[in-house]
């Protein structure tokens, strides 16, 4: 049976990993390739790099990191952040990424999802959706790192990107992100049940049971977390053991 996936996520800026609430704390900085290797050794099913580099002249650094990662880490690698055009998708894939994630650009230019999917295959195209609850049972899509509301309904947008050719959805609850209170399970379930492509739950993981809840209650196909792994609170292996105890099929 297909295993549910655990995906550690690394925020990368100008070639270094930053994470948590304190972006200026240099003790948090790490080498993305080293950290990806550690997660691979712990049994991570994939790794995601989110490039949050602000200055455009440092944007290409991520390509070198992806290249180095592809030489040493033999699990799938997804890269997102700053993807604006099909040329960005191609550059990342050619450097060694397996999937490219797009967020703001997909909302601004839905044709980009369709065009890239047609060119490189839908298995390479992830659409990231940042969603915030606007009413009971309703969530609005935000772009620009959560700064701009779009008026789009997250569930409808998820169905639309599937139609456009997305192969996977990375769904982040803005209400939960950084809270350590667990995924927004109602949001996760609503989206996962609405589409036929895999959904990765993200935002809010504070303990290992939250990961399991994302699968059992949220119907997610994969669960993504950053800080619980990054700060060494738990290993990926511990997460998988807990999920197995909860009756979830995992790769151990």
């Amino acid at each position: 049976m297909l295993a549910k996936r655990i995906i550690p996520c690394l925020d990368v800026t100008a070639g270094r990993v930053v994470k948590g609430t304190n972006f200026v704390d240099l003790r948090d900085a790490g080498d993305p390739v080293e950290i990806a290797r550690r997660y691979d050794a712990q049994g991570a099913d994939e790794v995601t790099f989110l490039d949050i580099t602000a200055s455009s002249d440092q944007r290409d650094i991520i390509l070198y990191i992806v290249e180095a990662c592809a030489e040493q880490v033999f699990i799938p690698l997804t890269v997102g952040g700053g993807v604006r055009a099909i040329a960005d998708v191609r550059r990342l894939l050619n450097a060694g990424a397996d999937k490219v994630s797009m967020n703001t650009a997909a909302v601004q230019n839905p044709d980009l999802v369709a065009e890239s999917s047609a060119k490189v295959g839908n298995q390479c195209i992830v659409v990231a959706i940042d969603a915030k609850q606007s009413a009971p049972g309703r969530w609005e899509v935000f772009t620009h790192g959560g700064r701009k509301g779009t008026g789009l309904c997250a569930i409808e947008w998820a169905c639309q990107v599937q139609q456009l050719g997305a192969g996977e959805i990375l769904l982040t609850s803005m209400d939960r992100d950084g809270t350590k209170n667990g995924f927004d399970l109602a949001l996760t379930r609503a989206v996962a049940d609405a589409v036929d492509i895999p959904v990765i739950a993200s935002g809010g993981v504070g303990n290992l049971d939250h990961l399991a809840d994302g699968v059992t209650e949220g119907h997610a196909d994969a669960v993504l977390a950053a800080s619980i792994f990054h700060f060494g609170e738990y290993t990926v292996r511990q997460a998988k053991e807990r999920m197995r105890e909860r009756g979830i099929e995992v790769r151990l």
């Binding site: 049976m1 297909l2 295993a3 996936r5 099913d45 298995q123 192969g167 589409v195 492509i197």
Partner: peptide
């Protein structure tokens, strides 16, 4: 055929680690 015996739906693409 894309569902488990308990009715849970199986997504396509088949993406992830399988035996």
């Amino acid at each position: 055929k894309m569902h488990l015996p308990d009715g849970q739906k199986l997504k396509v693409p088949h993406m992830g680690w399988n035996e």
